[in-house]
Design a protein around this nucleic acid. Structure first.
Lengths: 178, 178
DNA sequence: ATTATCTATAGATCTATAGATAATGC
DNA sequence: ATTATCTATAGATCTATAGATAATGC
């Protein structure tokens, strides 16, 4: 019964593509090609493109987070973003806008991502206030750096030394937290 | 010779739709319907969808800017964004990501928007340095608020009083400038 | 006559389904 | 026999074009 395996392969392929290009720019054919199956197979296993997306929606916040080294959370957050840029990995913070605006169900996507990001940050910074305003402000600031660096291509290595960027923007974020 | 007029009507309709939904989510049929012509007419007048986009690409930064009232530029920038939200107007800062990622020519769109926004901010804050690092940092911070408020729906009126948001995030932006 | 505009339709995708074939387990 | 997978294709869009008709200017 390799059905489970097939399903997982397809979902992994889809997740990769969705997290790079959003929903509508990815076709069933693309997913099939990357997974090594026919488009019909993808449809049979997943039912529909919308269901495939539900199963393969990019899981956004970075899985784990170790505030090692005693640096502030603000600095660490920014350092992560720079590290992903350096490694040419995809940047979740830069994909949020696309994921919301190009989702099959925009309102649901907005609500889900909002909750995901805010609660993830709230957990990082120990924000237990009812409104979590601080966390929301931090989300804005970090979102901006992600989009600025990756979507607009701002502040690349030659324009501003990485360490200086980490310190300056990190301090900015930290100032919201304190 | 109402050709000029027809063209302008079509471009205006297209600009409105593109600035709300990006490139690919807008169809020639949508533009035609809003302009009051047939899809064929839109094609005949504009040549192709890509050329229509070139003529009707949303002109992003707010047209003018009066730093009246003696408030800091940082505060004024944020106040504008809140005012647009209040008035239910579309938010250019929140559309940047979609406009880049969904453009027919992504690299060109990135370069053009990057230059547009950075130089607009540089002008606002009198940044004449060669690298315009400050301006780029400000673009990031403001971008984040735009995307946070409008794309993720963060910090609505009931979650944080507008004036407090203006003061706090405005001060943050201003701290980059100083 | 020329210009403005439309209807009709070709050709390219895309999602989705029907039904055939190949592989596997008994 | 059943399960996994494919080929073929229907039906829905979408951009783009060809060619017909209506309006305008001489």
């Amino acid at each position: 019964m390799s059905a489970v395996n097939t399903r997982d392969i397809i979902i992994a392929a889809a997740r990769h593509l969705f997290s790079e290009r959003g929903y509508s720019a990815v076709t069933i054919k693309d997913v099939a090609a990357r997974a090594g199956y026919s488009p019909a197979m993808v449809m049979k296993v997943m039912g529909s493109k919308a269901q495939l997306y539900k199963a393969a929606a990019p899981d956004v916040p970075a899985p784990e987070f170790h505030p090692d080294g005693g640096e502030s959370v603000g600095i660490t957050l920014i350092r992560r973003i720079l590290a992903r840029r350096e490694a040419d990995e995809s940047e979740p913070w830069a994909m949020v806008a696309l994921l919301v605006q190009d989702s099959p169900d925009q309102d649901a996507a907005r609500a889900e991502l909002r909750e995901k990001y805010v609660s993830w940050i709230a957990w990082q910074i120990d924000d237990t206030s009812p409104g979590r305003q601080k966390s929301q402000l931090v989300v804005c600031a970090v979102l901006g750096l992600g989009a600025g660096l990756r979507t607009l291509g701002l502040l690349d290595k030659e324009e501003m030394p990485e360490e200086q960027l980490v310190q300056q923007y990190g301090a900015l974020v930290q100032s919201i937290i304190d």
